[in-house]
Amino acid sequence: MTRDDTLWFVIAAYNEGPMIAEVVRGVTPHARVVVVDDGSADDTGDQALAGGACVATHLVNRGQGAALQTGIDFALAQGATHVVTFDADGQHDVGEALEMVARCRAEDLDAVLGSRFLGTTVNMPALRRLVIKAAVVFTRLTTGLKLTDAHNGLRVLSREAARKIRIRQDRMAHASEILSQIARLGLNWREHPVTITYSEYSLAKGQKISNSVRILEDILFGARS
């Protein structure tokens, strides 16, 4: 397997020291990786570097949206033709991400969005399924995008799309923001089935249900776009 130096995986990581090196090592045989260490208190940055990723460090925590935008800026500066946003906690499957990139290239798409509802989920809590379904309906009403999933962190963006999309929502509302920009910019997108594995680690690290209220607040009052 040869590494594709024009393909960049962007991973936003906050206190992901225990898992990040392993996640990075899963990607580095296939593509370049930039980990944005979002002001972690642990050794996330060093672990990611040891795993073979480039590391951009936020000196203070700015949130996942801000970290992804930093990583995208970095990848574009390094000449990326495609950017993959990838979770730090091992929920995503590298093989599926590469399939999405191949599809993005083959069909000349601007964006390929992972959907866990077209694909499979492993150990998904019922309440989380309900909240995500609510987000899907919300997205459909606000953007007109007929998606099956709304807050999936696995996305492939072409260079053009990555340049046009500007994440201004520093925290978690960026997932909705990216979708609304895809709709507004009229980008050519497809959904692709992916597997999300809810491991004990990812569940402990992942979104709390209560965060959805915060996300809604950010969408309603925080957006300038």
Partner: peptide, 12 residues
């Protein structure tokens, strides 16, 4: 923070 992070990025 973003500008600093990119300027001072570490490479493996």
């Amino acid at each position: 923070v973003r500008r600093l992070a990119i300027q001072q990025a570490r490479f493996p």
